[in-house]
Design a protein around this nucleic acid. Structure first.
Lengths: 269, 269
DNA sequence: CGATGTGTTGACCGGGTTCAAACAATGTGG
DNA sequence: CCACATTGTTTGAACCCGGTCAACACATCG
């Protein structure tokens, strides 16, 4: 089992290593339960193996800006990411457009097409990545004889719903600075769950995209990042300012909670 | 087929009528395609019939404040609303709580429990309503011999995902006033899709709850409603100020679009 | 080199929050 | 019946976070 399979250059350990070996970094606080991260990693690997074994897959390599599918296009297949990172963009009737999701290896895309028969979003590559496309009908047929496939499908849909709700929670209850911190935390967590190093992330989004995703302007994103950098929560790796070092993810989490004003925690009723 | 099955007193036509008969209200602009509304209504009715015929259902009547399930509780069943309106409330680890969804007849609840094995939200009745609970395992077994059940399940999950994304879009791109208008529009649309009258809605939420759902304070909700009332977009039915008359839903929609500043429509890249 | 896209920072302003006060609806107990 | 408490709503006034506009820095690329 490889911990690293992404073709993209960054977010990848220089040397192949197992997921467990981080004893060489003793000062870094373990932000997440490591067992949960490896469990997530194994689940993702198992799902991909299951798909490879049990259904017909059409593989594609996409590059930055390429779209897996577009809003309005007839739905026929679901898409599982094998590598790279992608965004989903929702477009309103009046032209407002909104990044509604970030997706990494193992994530499924296209669920919103099932009910309407048409995709509701654009799915855009932010990176070079490989996509496995699976005919929805074929998947259902395969699932009939292999229940694990159905379980995997439902698992992915369920997670998508949970994730969307967490996004709503962050948007509604957190200040701008906290949302940016939470965004970094989420990205790092996503990498950790995939067995990739999570203390160094390469944002493949402009400040404008991040701002759109987080419901704020690009200036606010920039200021929030600068503030976090000056406080030592993050560091900019190179001068491009898209490579971000996170010395302590736990610090991000406490920052998020510290930003949340007490009033926002008010209970309903 | 009954257009009205809700035990709650309001949102219900005084006389039984078929879904199509609103020729008696000629001045009201048809805000939605009527064919879409009746199609949605028929789909919901068919789904409920399908469930009644094909799987074991446990029926329960809940009253305001009762919970179908709570966050953290072990997942075992999905729940389909037969009547009433419900909210789902997400609670963060640090205590922030957030209304993340509103649900009406025909909606499924509990999807977020599938992946984690525990529900991630509270599902709370805002009204007297009947819930049909279906063991998830039993549902899967039944779905194996009756594919329409599986289709219904996936349809519901897919819609949930689309709906959450629309919420994100509104939250990020609309001003406070527009969000309140869009909230009313959504509620009215939900009623219309269920064959109920949509020009008179009884909010079963306090201003604080609405504000929480929309990511703003209760004062802002109150001001937005007052403003809309003074502009004639809505009228307060009785003195409780929770019954709202919507003379023209189309007006709400144009108001939403009018509120969206051009800058928010800026395209990514 | 200029052109272009992206990021940073400052100054200003306004929408929405916060704080406060008053009012309305409802219930409770004497 | 009224007095009183409770909960929800409205409205005003002051404040402030984040949006807006603008200028500049910096990188890449023809």
């Amino acid at each position: 089992m490889y911990a690293v399979e992404t073709p993209s250059a960054s977010n990848v350990q220089p040397t192949l290593r197992t997921v467990r070996s981080n004893a060489d970094e003793p000062r870094r606080r373990s932000a997440w339960k490591e067992s949960e991260m490896t469990a997530a990693c194994e689940r993702i690997t198992r799902q991909l193996q299951l798909l490879r074994d049990e259904v017909a897959i059409q593989r594609r390599v996409l590059h930055t800006g390429d779209k897996i599918y577009q809003a309005g296009q007839a739905f026929g297949a679901l898409h599982v990411l094998h590598s790279g990172c992608f965004k989903t963009v929702n477009v309103a009737a009046d032209g407002r457009e909104q990044v509604v999701g970030l997706h990494f290896k193992g994530d499924w895309l296209g669920f919103d097409g099932i009910a309407r028969g048409r995709y509701g979003c654009d799915a855009v590559a932010m990176d070079t990545g490989e996509v496995w496309s699976i005919s929805y009908d074929a998947l259902l047929q395969a699932a009939a004889r292999q229940p694990a496939l159905l379980a995997a499908l439902h698992d992915a849909m369920s997670r998508e719903i949970s994730r969307d709700r967490d996004s709503l929670l962050s948007l509604c209850t957190l200040s701008a600075d906290a949302r940016v911190a939470d965004f970094l935390r989420y990205w790092a967590e996503s990498l950790a769950q995939r067995g990739l190093r999570s203390d160094h992330i390469t944002l493949r989004m402009t400040r404008a995209e991040i701002g759109n995703y987080l419901g704020m302007t690009l200036e606010t994103v920039s200021r929030a990042l600068s503030r976090m950098a000056s406080e030592g929560l993050i560091r900019f790796a190179d001068k491009s300012r898209r490579d971000i070092l996170i010395p302590d993810v736990g610090g991000l989490m406490t920052f998020v909670e510290g930003c949340a004003p007490a009033s926002r925690k008010v209970t309903l009723q």
